[in-house]
């Protein structure tokens, strides 16, 4: 079973057909979601009742996505959370990367293994463990000292901490992988030319890390934006878009969620291709230069 090994025509054709069917299966649900955003019906389901842009634009009777303040607000909430998670993950991830790649200390390999734990703990468990821990601390402070700390109660700050708790592992791995490839003599050269330790890191090492920081940033943002399991356990009254869409789909919804999904897919696709092109441009420049 290789290109170099002769196979019967039927086998080759059958194999190609299977792979084609696989890709049909991969994309069918997404295409279906997109198509039914334009269905002139109250429900996101067949039969097809004609083409309409109501689920995007309408503001009277049917509420299109551009006039659905609840859904738009929830997107804003998700973006706020994702930005916070991304910034936190990049800062802590970078420090972790330096710790793992540069520092020598006892228990380092144990620390590294512990950093990987969040990836093998189910998201629901991460959520409930942080939920009850924060509540216990909040209750303790309240009972003993009469201090009320709001951010330890279910709400956006806890959502940020919950998502950060495992996304930072991925940021750490991405940044550390790049830092490992860094040629230390460059930093030494900068020091020889009179730069301070931090100065050399800022002017030489950090620019080298930029592609990894961008990559880790995009992954962190996406993972936060799309997170459901951990968020569900920690969310308060202000719901991010995944939670809101979940409730709406579960309880029955109009095709407005299809319209929103289509827009999100377009944004993702644009961002994804942009990143791919930027990466390719960067590599080409590096190759020629």
């Amino acid at each position: 079973m290789l290109t170099t090994i002769p196979q019967s025509r039927t086998f080759k054709l059958g194999y190609a057909l299977y792979v084609a069917l696989f890709f049909l299966y991969l994309f069918a649900p997404l295409v279906v979601v997109g198509i039914f955003a334009f269905n002139d019906s109250q429900f996101p389901s067949p039969p097809w009742r004609g083409f309409t842009l109501d689920w995007f634009l309408s503001s009277t009777g049917r509420i299109g996505i551009f006039h659905d303040d609840g859904l738009i607000g929830s997107i804003g909430t998700s973006i706020k959370v994702a930005v916070a998670v991304t910034i936190l993950s990049l800062i802590v991830g970078t420090m972790n990367a330096f710790l793992l790649e540069r520092a020598q200390f006892r228990g380092k390999s144990l620390l590294f293994t512990m950093m990987l734990w969040p990836l093998v703990i189910p998201g629901v468990i991460l959520g409930v463990s942080i939920l009850q821990f924060a509540s216990t601390v909040a209750n303790g402070l309240e009972d003993r000292f009469g201090i009320f700390i709001d951010f330890l109660r279910p709400g956006l700050p806890l959502v940020v901490f919950g998502q950060f708790s495992f996304i930072v592992t991925i940021a750490t791995l991405v940044i550390a992988a790049r830092l490992r490839k860094f040629d230390m003599t460059l930093e030494e050269a900068a020091r020889d030319l009179g730069a301070s330790r931090l100065g050399a890191i800022r002017t030489v090492t950090m620019p080298f890390l930029t592609p990894a920081l961008i990559g880790a940033g995009v992954i962190s943002f996406l993972m936060s934006f799309e997170n459901f399991n951990t968020t569900l356990m920690l969310v308060g009254s202000e719901a991010p878009v995944t939670i809101r869409m979940f409730t709406q789909i579960r309880d029955g919804t109009t095709p407005v969620v299809n319209a929103l999904s289509l827009l999100l897919m377009l944004v993702m696709a644009t961002a994804g291709f942009g990143l791919l092109l930027a990466n390719r441009g960067g590599e080409a420049r590096r190759d020629s230069g």
Binding site: A28, L30, V33, S261, A269, G272
Partner: peptide, 25 residues
């Protein structure tokens, strides 16, 4: 191409399956 659908949230993909599988699907 095989990775592409997974950039989209699980919620959206599941919505697609609901439209495919539901009684009026």
């Amino acid at each position: 191409l095989a990775l592409l659908p997974f950039w989209v949230s699980e919620l959206i993909r599941t919505l697609g399956w609901i439209i495919i599988l539901r009684e009026t699907g």
